[in-house]
Amino acid sequence: MLDETLDDAKERMSATVEALKREMAGVRTGRAATGLVDNLRVDYFGSEMPLNQLAQISVGDARLLVIQPWDKNAVDPIAKAIQNSDLSISPNIDGAIIRLNLPPLTEERRRDLVKSVKARGEESKVTIRSIRRDAQDMIRTIEKDGDASQDDCQRAQKDLQKLTDGSVAIIETEAAAKGEEVMQV
């Protein structure tokens, strides 16, 4: 019972960390990165699809993303999705190829992005702590019901705290690294 509770907490914490990593990949830095548009949702023939399932995305140079749709009919919906996104980039359509020129970020915009990265990191840490609280409640219930000894439950609490500390450390490292990357000119 205790092992199942710890495994569930570990799985949920790992999922939270992975979600943060995916979200951080989409944060704009000074350089072009495919992560900016990979999961951009495109309305394609009535269904919402991620851009990376509709086109090949590549980095042309430090400030250029090249998007080559597999279907020429997807060019306009992709361009529309890019314009409607929060990227603030106008797509250049050249036949069946879409080019995204990324202008340099201003100092003010960089600071705003760092603030949002830190805020997202804090949200992830709150989620981790919520998972810990749920697992602690479950461990207390197991102990109260007499399904495990007090020593086993205390050991499980310590293991849970180690899991929490490890996940929070990973989140802090990811957020700090992304913040530094955004501030690089």
Rank of each mutant, 00 (worst) to 15 (best):
N52A: 04
V59Y: 02
A32F: 04
D61L: 00
G26N: 14
V75F: 13
A176M: 12
L100F: 02
Q53D: 08
M24E: 07
Q184I: 08
D7S: 15
Y44M: 03
E107A: 11
E122L: 04
A81S: 14
G35T: 10
K162P: 11
P91Q: 05
I67V: 12
D7H: 12
L102N: 01
C153E: 01
R22W: 07
D165V: 04
P77E: 10
L102C: 02
D61T: 00
D3S: 09
L160C: 11
A25W: 06
D38P: 13
Q83S: 06
R111N: 11
G26H: 09
R99E: 09
R132I: 07
R109C: 08
R28E: 08
L2C: 05
M13P: 03
S124N: 13
K80P: 13
E122C: 00
Q150R: 13
I78R: 11
D145T: 13
A177L: 11
M1D: 05
I93W: 12
R129A: 05
E180Y: 07
K115M: 07
K72N: 12
Q150H: 14
I128H: 01
Q83R: 05
D86F: 03
R155H: 07
I89C: 05
I97G: 10
G95L: 02
R133E: 12
M24G: 06
A79R: 06
K21T: 00
K21S: 01
Q68T: 04
L87A: 01
E180I: 03
E18H: 14
T127E: 15
A25C: 13
V168L: 07
E172Q: 14
E180Q: 14
R120I: 00
K118G: 04
E180G: 10
Q154M: 15
A176P: 15
Q157T: 09
M24V: 10
K125R: 06
P50M: 13
R120W: 10
T29M: 01
V42H: 09
D151I: 06
D165L: 08
A169L: 15
E181P: 11
I139L: 04
N84P: 15
P103H: 10
Q150F: 01
